[in-house]
C-alpha cells in the first residue's frame, strides 16, 4: 500500500505520536511527520491528521495560534482540494479556528478538565471516516479536554444536523456541547473534527479498540478510491 498519511506537530502537541502510531497500525506505513513551521506539506498526501494537545499553550484561544501557523495554509488548501483531514481534540479546535469547520469550542460547562472514557454515538455512518460504523452504534472512546464545549448558532446547528454533518454525539452528559455534538464534518465530508480521541482506542490493551474502525474506514476508502 502506498498510503501517505501525515501528522502535523505544533509546539505543544502531545498526541502526535499516538496519532502516528494509529495511522501506521492501520495502514502498515509509517506516518510522515510534519512540523508547524514547514513552508508546505509533503506532496501527494492521502490523509492529514491534526493531533491533540495544547498547541502554543492555548494562548489567546485553544487552537487560535496553530490555525495561523505556516503549515496551516497548505493544510487549508489541501482540505479544499478534497484531501481527508482529521482533527482530534486540539486538532478540532484548530480546524474551527482555521475556518475549515463551523462553530467554536468553548470552556467545558463544568469548568473542569475532563479526562475519561465516554459513550459516543455514531450519527452519520456514511462519511469516509465513519463508514466502518453503523448509525446509532455506541462507542467507548476517551476524551481529555478543557475546551470541548461545542458552540454554533441555531441556524448553523440546524444546517449541520439537516445535512448529516454531525458525525458523533455524546451519549451522556460530558461538556455542555450544543446538542451533545462531539464531532462534525465539513460540507464536502472530507474534514472531520472531533473532541474524543479515536487514536487512543485502537486496541484492547488501551482499554478500547472502538476508535480503530475510524482509521480503517478512512484508509480503506482511500486505497479503494
Amino acid at each position: 500500500m502506498s498510503f501517505r498519511g501525515a501528522v502535523v506537530t505544533f509546539p505543544g502537541s502531545n498526541c502526535d505520536r499516538d496519532m502516528a502510531v494509529a495511522l501506521e497500525a492501520v495502514s502498515g506505513v509509517p506516518a510522515i511527520r510534519v512540523w508547524h513551521g514547514d513552508a508546505e506539506l509533503p506532496a501527494n498526501l492521502d490523509f492529514i491528521a491534526l493531533p491533540g494537545g495544547f498547541s502554543y499553550g492555548d494562548y489567546l484561544r485553544s487552537g487560535a495560534m496553530a490555525a495561523r501557523s505556516t503549515v496551516m495554509q497548505s493544510v487549508i488548501e489541501a482540505a479544499r482540494r478534497g484531501v481527508p483531514v482529521l482533527g482530534v481534540c486540539n486538532g478540532f479546535q484548530v480546524l474551527t479556528e482555521a475556518g475549515l469547520l463551523p462553530g467554536a469550542l468553548m470552556r467545558n460547562a463544568s469548568q473542569h478538565f475532563i479526562c475519561r472514557n465516554v459513550k459516543l454515538k455514531v450519527e452519520n455512518s456514511q462519511s469516509l471516516f465513519t463508514a466502518g460504523y453503523s448509525a446509532g452504534q455506541i462507542l467507548n472512546i476517551p476524551v481529555a479536554h478543557h475546551d470541548g464545549n461545542y458552540f454554533a448558532d441555531d441556524a448553523t446547528l440546524d444546517r449541520l444536523e439537516g445535512e448529516g454533518r454531525v458525525a458523533f454525539r455524546y451519549a451522556e452528559t460530558v461538556n455542555g456541547s450544543a446538542r451533545d455534538i462531539a464531532g462534525v464534518l465539513n460540507e464536502a465530508g472530507n474534514v472531520l473534527g472531533m473532541m474524543p480521541h479515536p487514536e487512543r482506542a485502537i486496541e484492547e490493551a488501551l482499554g478500547s479498540s472502538d476508535g480503530r474502525a475510524l482509521f480503517e474506514s478512512a484508509i480503506r476508502s482511500l486505497v479503494e478510491a
Binding site: 489567546l60 484561544r61 487560535a64 495561523r68 479556528e97 462553530g103 467554536a104 458552540f151
Partner: peptide, 9 residues
Amino acid sequence: KQLLANMVI
C-alpha cells in the same frame, strides 16, 4: 477579525 477575536462567539 483575523486573529484577536473569534467572530463565531
